[in-house]
Measured scan of single mutants.
Amino acid sequence: MVQRGSKVRILRPESYWFQDVGTVASVDQSGIKYPVIVRFEKVNYSGINTNNFAEDELVEVEA
């Protein structure tokens, strides 16, 4: 279970941040499909630095 402030590695192959490390900004408990919002240092092609992920697409590298 990841929690706010954890450092996580992204396992979603189609993601711009695949294999990159980001910080968990928040975790939604309402039961949505992609409840974990992760914030990154670098921006993607659209200038965005956050994205939603499912918990099984993340691996915690640092608490």
Rank of each mutant, 00 (worst) to 15 (best):
Met1Lys: 15
Met1Tyr: 11
Met1Pro: 11
Met1Gly: 14
Met1Asp: 07
Val2Glu: 01
Val2Trp: 11
Gln3Asp: 04
Gln3Cys: 12
Gln3Glu: 08
Gln3Lys: 14
Gln3Asn: 08
Gln3Ile: 09
Arg4Ile: 15
Arg4Trp: 06
Arg4Gln: 13
Arg4Pro: 15
Gly5Trp: 03
Gly5His: 02
Gly5Pro: 03
Gly5Ile: 02
Gly5Cys: 11
Gly5Tyr: 02
Gly5Leu: 02
Gly5Ser: 01
Ser6Trp: 09
Ser6Pro: 03
Ser6Glu: 04
Ser6Arg: 08
Ser6Gln: 11
Lys7Asn: 04
Lys7Met: 09
Lys7Pro: 03
Lys7Thr: 08
Val8Cys: 08
Val8Gln: 03
Val8Ala: 00
Val8Trp: 02
Val8Gly: 02
Arg9Ile: 10
Arg9Phe: 07
Arg9His: 06
Arg9Gly: 06
Arg9Glu: 06
Ile10Arg: 04
Ile10Ala: 00
Ile10Asp: 04
Leu11Val: 05
Leu11Cys: 10
Leu11Met: 10
Arg12Gln: 06
Arg12Thr: 07
Arg12Tyr: 05
Arg12Glu: 01
Arg12Asp: 06
Pro13Tyr: 09
Pro13Glu: 13
Pro13Ser: 09
Pro13Asp: 04
Pro13Ile: 13
Glu14Ile: 06
Glu14His: 11
Glu14Cys: 12
Glu14Gly: 13
Ser15Asp: 06
Ser15His: 02
Ser15Phe: 05
Ser15Thr: 02
Ser15Arg: 00
Ser15Gly: 02
Ser15Met: 03
Tyr16Phe: 15
Tyr16Asn: 01
Trp17Cys: 03
Trp17Glu: 00
Trp17Arg: 00
Trp17Ala: 00
Trp17Lys: 01
Phe18Ser: 03
Phe18Glu: 00
Phe18Trp: 05
Phe18Asp: 01
Phe18Asn: 01
Phe18Arg: 01
Phe18Ile: 02
Phe18Leu: 01
Gln19Cys: 13
Gln19Ile: 06
Gln19Thr: 05
Gln19His: 09
Gln19Arg: 09
Asp20Lys: 09
Asp20Thr: 09
Val21Ala: 01
Val21Glu: 05
Val21His: 03
Val21Pro: 01
Val21Thr: 07
Val21Arg: 00
Val21Leu: 10
Val21Gly: 02
Gly22Trp: 09
Gly22Arg: 00
Gly22Asn: 02
Gly22Phe: 05
Gly22Gln: 04
Thr23His: 05
Thr23Pro: 00
Thr23Cys: 12
Thr23Asn: 03
Thr23Ala: 02
Thr23Asp: 03
Thr23Glu: 11
Val24Thr: 02
Val24Cys: 06
Val24Tyr: 04
Val24Leu: 01
Val24Trp: 03
Ala25Gly: 03
Ala25Asp: 14
Ala25Thr: 14
Ala25Leu: 15
Ala25Cys: 15
Ser26Ile: 07
Ser26Pro: 01
Ser26Asn: 11
Ser26Cys: 15
Val27Cys: 06
Val27Lys: 04
Val27Gly: 02
Asp28Met: 11
Asp28Leu: 13
Asp28Pro: 03
Gln29His: 13
Gln29Tyr: 14
Gln29Ala: 10
Gln29Cys: 12
Gln29Ile: 11
Gln29Val: 11
Ser30Trp: 04
Ser30Met: 06
Ser30Ala: 08
Ser30His: 07
Ser30Tyr: 06
Gly31Leu: 11
Gly31Pro: 06
Gly31Asn: 15
Ile32Met: 10
Ile32Gly: 14
Ile32Thr: 13
Ile32Ala: 12
Ile32Tyr: 06
Ile32Leu: 10
Lys33Trp: 05
Lys33Gln: 11
Lys33Ser: 08
Lys33Asn: 09
Tyr34Glu: 04
Tyr34Trp: 10
Pro35Leu: 11
Pro35Arg: 11
Pro35Ala: 08
Pro35Phe: 11
Pro35Tyr: 10
Pro35Cys: 13
Pro35Gln: 07
Val36Leu: 04
Val36Thr: 00
Val36Cys: 04
Val36Trp: 09
Ile37Ser: 13
Ile37Ala: 13
Ile37Leu: 15
Ile37Thr: 15
Ile37Pro: 00
Ile37Tyr: 10
Val38Arg: 00
Arg39Glu: 12
Arg39Tyr: 11
Arg39Ile: 14
Arg39Gly: 02
Arg39Cys: 14
Phe40Lys: 00
Phe40Trp: 01
Phe40Ser: 01
Phe40Tyr: 01
Phe40Thr: 00
Phe40Gln: 00
Phe40His: 01
Phe40Glu: 00
Glu41Gln: 09
Glu41Met: 07
Glu41His: 08
Glu41Pro: 07
Glu41Lys: 08
Lys42Asn: 10
Lys42His: 09
Lys42Cys: 11
Lys42Thr: 14
Lys42Ser: 12
Lys42Trp: 08
Val43Asn: 10
Val43Glu: 10
Val43His: 12
Val43Gly: 08
Val43Gln: 11
Asn44Glu: 04
Asn44Val: 05
Asn44Leu: 04
Asn44Trp: 08
Asn44Tyr: 05
Asn44Pro: 05
Asn44Ile: 03
Tyr45Asn: 15
Tyr45Val: 12
Tyr45Pro: 15
Ser46Cys: 15
Ser46His: 14
Ser46Gln: 15
Gly47Gln: 04
Gly47Asn: 05
Gly47Leu: 02
Gly47Cys: 08
Gly47Ala: 03
Gly47Ile: 03
Gly47Met: 03
Ile48Asp: 13
Ile48Ser: 14
Ile48Ala: 13
Asn49Val: 05
Asn49Lys: 05
Asn49Tyr: 09
Asn49Met: 06
Asn49Leu: 05
Thr50His: 11
Thr50Leu: 09
Thr50Phe: 14
Thr50Gln: 12
Asn51Met: 15
Asn51Gln: 15
Asn51Ala: 15
Asn51Ser: 15
Asn52Phe: 08
Asn52Val: 06
Asn52Thr: 07
Phe53Met: 01
Phe53Gln: 00
Phe53Val: 00
Phe53Thr: 05
Phe53Arg: 01
Ala54Ile: 03
Ala54Gly: 08
Ala54Gln: 07
Ala54Arg: 12
Ala54Tyr: 06
Ala54Glu: 06
Ala54Asp: 08
Ala54Met: 07
Glu55Gln: 13
Glu55Gly: 06
Glu55Ser: 09
Glu55Arg: 13
Asp56Cys: 12
Asp56Trp: 15
Glu57Met: 03
Glu57Cys: 04
Glu57Gln: 02
Glu57Trp: 05
Leu58Val: 11
Leu58Cys: 07
Leu58Lys: 00
Leu58Ser: 00
Val59Met: 13
Val59Phe: 08
Val59Gly: 07
Val59Trp: 08
Val59Asp: 09
Glu60Thr: 13
Glu60Trp: 09
Glu60Met: 14
Glu60Asn: 09
Val61Trp: 06
Val61Ser: 03
Val61Tyr: 05
Val61Asp: 04
Val61Cys: 08
Val61Thr: 06
Glu62Leu: 10
Glu62Phe: 13
Glu62Pro: 13
Glu62Ser: 11
Glu62Val: 11
Glu62His: 12
Glu62Ile: 10
Ala63Tyr: 11
Ala63Phe: 12
Ala63Ser: 13
Ala63Asp: 13
Ala63Leu: 11
